Computed example of a mutant assay.
Amino acid sequence: MKVICYAVAPLEDSYIKNWAKKNDVEVKILREDLNEKTVHLAEGFDGISSEGIEPVTEEVYDQLAKFGLKQLAVRQVGFDNQDLEAAKKYGIKITNVASYSPRAIAEMGVTHAMYLLRQVGIYYNRMNHGNFNFEERTLSREIFNCTIGLIGGGHIGGATAQIYSSLGAKVLLFDPYYDAALEPFVEYTDLDTIFKKSDIISLHTPLLPSTTNIINSESISKMEKQPILINMARGGLVDTSALIDALKSGKISGAGLDTLANEAEFFGKEHVKESDLPDDYKELVNMDNVLITPHVAFFTKLAVKNSIEIALNDMKSIINGKGSKNIVNL
């Protein structure tokens, strides 16, 4: 069996090679993304995997089908850059890694929230300018006195709920699908209640037409407690201009962002010139009540290992005609 892996980061090499040796599979590793210009490199292979960051067009699926490939294993949770209907049209089964380490992302979200809740950014900025004072404006709250509003109760949302609950916070959850396993940690409610009653709002939902810009000027207007907003999911869930306005007005007291709507322009790249950075990013990053990380919430040793092994195991299973529970375009 021969398989090809696109968009492999150097740190992934050893994990892929270990999997290949353990499974007696020949693997070709590429740094390039999967797109119209690179899809020809997949000819002659039995299976294919990609990081799944760059959007994949119908032309790519067409070519994969012509090469006899029947699957594409995405090595991450998100699959919004895949055209699922086009892939299905050409008989390409798309798999994702639905749960490689929910705790990794949940912990990063809570880290952002605690940083903002305790005003660390404000103190850090002041100290860099020789000001070591504190006053009423920077008076913090303790997490057990906060109400957390989670939008999305999947693997990551559920792990987030458990952490906040263990810290003594009250956790509200909005999700269209009920999960009885979360009952010890959350109180299910509607979206408007999340906006109205939460001190911290944390997003854990896929990017869908129904969730795009779920945080917008209208939803922000319903927020009564000047909450902290945490987004560890997808940048497109937030209307960035509306968020900036809310931060300036104090309607939202802080924002922890591991993802931005336009992040593909600069996240994951080195030596990005300041002149090439989007204006909204430059405005956000200079606010001392905003914390931005470059989509690295997933980035732990366990998560990287699991994302590769789960994706490649699914790939092998489908090639051998056994299917996978992680197919997202049945």
Score class of each variant (00 low, 15 high):
residue 3 V to I: 15
residue 3 V to S: 14
residue 9 A to F: 14
residue 9 A to G: 07
residue 11 L to A: 13
residue 15 Y to F: 15
residue 16 I to T: 06
residue 20 A to W: 06
residue 21 K to R: 13
residue 26 E to R: 09
residue 27 V to L: 13
residue 29 I to R: 09
residue 30 L to A: 02
residue 34 L to K: 05
residue 41 L to P: 07
residue 42 A to Y: 03
residue 42 A to N: 02
residue 46 D to I: 02
residue 48 I to Y: 00
residue 50 S to Q: 03
residue 53 I to G: 11
residue 54 E to Q: 15
residue 54 E to Y: 13
residue 57 T to N: 10
residue 58 E to C: 04
residue 60 V to W: 00
residue 61 Y to A: 03
residue 63 Q to E: 12
residue 66 K to M: 04
residue 67 F to T: 07
residue 70 K to M: 02
residue 72 L to D: 02
residue 72 L to K: 02
residue 74 V to I: 15
residue 74 V to D: 08
residue 79 F to W: 13
residue 80 D to A: 14
residue 83 D to R: 12
residue 83 D to F: 05
residue 86 A to G: 04
residue 87 A to S: 09
residue 88 K to E: 07
residue 96 N to R: 11
residue 97 V to I: 00
residue 98 A to K: 14
residue 99 S to M: 02
residue 99 S to N: 13
residue 101 S to H: 01
residue 102 P to I: 07
residue 108 M to A: 06
residue 109 G to I: 09
residue 111 T to F: 10
residue 112 H to M: 14
residue 116 L to V: 06
residue 118 R to S: 05
residue 118 R to E: 05
residue 126 R to D: 05
residue 132 F to S: 01
residue 133 N to Q: 12
residue 134 F to G: 03
residue 136 E to I: 12
residue 150 L to F: 00
residue 151 I to K: 01
residue 152 G to C: 02
residue 154 G to T: 10
residue 157 G to F: 00
residue 172 L to F: 10
residue 176 P to Q: 08
residue 179 D to M: 01
residue 180 A to I: 12
residue 181 A to H: 13
residue 184 P to A: 08
residue 186 V to F: 14
residue 190 D to N: 15
residue 193 T to Q: 09
residue 197 K to C: 09
residue 201 I to H: 05
residue 203 L to K: 11
residue 204 H to E: 12
residue 205 T to G: 08
residue 206 P to S: 10
residue 208 L to E: 03
residue 208 L to P: 00
residue 209 P to G: 10
residue 209 P to R: 07
residue 209 P to N: 04
residue 213 N to R: 09
residue 213 N to C: 08
residue 216 N to E: 06
residue 221 S to N: 05
residue 223 M to V: 07
residue 225 K to V: 08
residue 226 Q to R: 14
residue 229 L to F: 05
residue 231 N to R: 10
residue 234 R to V: 01
residue 235 G to K: 00
residue 237 L to H: 03
residue 239 D to R: 04
residue 239 D to C: 03
residue 239 D to A: 10
residue 240 T to A: 09
residue 241 S to W: 04
residue 241 S to H: 13
residue 243 L to G: 03
residue 243 L to F: 06
residue 252 I to F: 02
residue 252 I to N: 07
residue 252 I to A: 04
residue 255 A to H: 08
residue 261 A to V: 13
residue 266 F to G: 10
residue 266 F to N: 05
residue 270 E to G: 06
residue 273 K to G: 07
residue 273 K to V: 10
residue 273 K to D: 14
residue 274 E to G: 09
residue 274 E to V: 12
residue 282 K to R: 15
residue 284 L to S: 11
residue 286 N to I: 11
residue 287 M to L: 12
residue 289 N to F: 06
residue 289 N to S: 10
residue 293 T to W: 12
residue 293 T to Q: 13
residue 294 P to E: 07
residue 295 H to Y: 02
residue 298 F to S: 08
residue 302 L to K: 15
residue 302 L to V: 15
residue 305 K to F: 15
residue 308 I to K: 11
residue 310 I to Y: 07
residue 311 A to R: 05
residue 312 L to V: 09
residue 314 D to A: 11
residue 314 D to L: 00
residue 315 M to Q: 14
residue 322 K to C: 02
residue 324 S to I: 02
residue 326 N to I: 01
residue 326 N to C: 01
residue 327 I to K: 06
residue 328 V to C: 10
